[in-house]
């Protein structure tokens, strides 16, 4: 009884855009115009969605259970911060550098991590996030150590748009980058490459038996996921002009897992719903009573594993199916 993942797309399906897939974007644009005071929180949600989406690629579709994905988010965040402080403040250039660096880091570490499975893989990824944390914590002259890097300089976007106080530019910037990442992931999981990732997730031995280079494919996906996570981290640095140790903790690895599972694993849009619900709920509840918020998340997680294995979107699927059956 594996965690219910989204329906596989594969060779029988169509990749045409369903109208419902435009909902997140319509919602984001509505927030931009109707709720301007939520833009900073909104930008943060968009960043975490991109991070969750990158995890969905390797965990939901690739079936690689990792505890270390925050390592790449944090790596990208620090690369963007250090690059802006020491080299150049152009945001797009910084984003590209963070993406390239995270991809290289992801390829190098993935080449090692993906040789193992199960427990060893969990441990290696956990060790990885701990190593990145220690480097960020102790290499003070570059990373700022426990204080982090404050007032990271960020230039104008495309040389024309300033990052304003109200977070308008930041929000649209994050939205555009997320849209690009979404399109990339969506195309990938609909492609033969994505189908073969799912095949390896479902039955790795058989993928070998049909002659598929499983390791190489998984490494490709892992590298791309690392790059996307790094981009998300870089966005966080640029939009908050700060980077600190919280971007690379094991807790963050756990939290992003929780958010993805809350939304639904292996369905792309679970990565949209989960972080939105989680972060908005935290924004309200955690201020009132942080203890009960943590308690609630824990209980919720246990309930999801025990009863609602498809997350929010899985529940929605179930309700929709029942509704269709009751109205033939």
């Amino acid at each position: 009884m594996p965690l219910a993942r989204g329906p596989a797309i594969g060779y029988g399906g169509s990749a045409r855009l369903h109208p419902a897939e435009l909902l997140p974007w319509a919602f984001a644009i509505a927030v931009y115009f109707l709720a301007p005071s939520y833009l900073p929180l909104g930008a943060y949600v968009l960043i975490i969605i991109l991070f969750a989406l990158s995890l969905d690629l390797i965990l939901g579709y690739g079936g690689i259970v990792t505890l270390g994905h925050a390592a790449y988010f944090g790596f990208g965040a620090y690369v963007a911060g250090v690059f802006a402080v020491r080299v150049h403040g152009d945001p797009l250039l910084g984003l590209a550098v963070a993406a390239a660096a995270s991809a290289a880091f992801g390829a190098a570490t993935g080449a090692v991590v993906l040789r193992t499975r199960a427990l060893a893989l969990l441990m290696l990824t956990l060790a990885l996030v701990s190593i990145v944390f220690e480097v960020a914590n102790k290499w003070t002259e570059v990373t700022g150590g426990a204080d982090g890097l404050n007032s990271v300089p960020v230039g104008q976007l495309l040389g024309a748009f300033r990052f304003d106080l109200f977070g308008k530019t930041a929000f649209l910037y994050c939205l555009a980058v997320l849209a690009a990442g979404w399109w990339l992931v969506r195309s990938l999981v609909h492609s033969p490459f994505g189908a073969s990732l799912v095949g390896a997730r479902e039955n790795e031995a058989r993928m070998h038996a049909i002659g598929a280079p499983v390791y190489a494919r998984q490494l490709c996906a892992y590298t791309l996921a690392a790059a996307l996570a790094g981009v998300a981290g870089a966005l966080l640095t640029q939009t908050t002009q700060f980077v600190g140790l919280s971007v690379v903790s094991f807790e963050l690895s756990g939290e992003i897992l929780v958010m993805l599972v809350l939304g639904g694993v292996g369905r792309i849009y679970g990565a949209f719903v989960g972080p939105l619900v989680f972060i908005v709920a935290r924004d309200y509840l955690a201020k009132q009573s942080p203890e009960y918020w943590v308690l609630g998340i824990g209980v919720l997680l246990i309930l999801i594993v025990m009863f609602a294995r498809g997350g929010i979107l899985g529940l929605a699927d179930g309700i929709a199916a029942r509704w269709r059956r009751s109205r033939p």
Binding site: M1, I297, G298
Partner: peptide
Amino acid sequence: AGELEQVLFTIGLIFVAIAIARL
């Protein structure tokens, strides 16, 4: 269950324990 379920369930337990300890 798969390792993902076990990972999630035990992370959930950790959250619950942290909350109780803080309370």
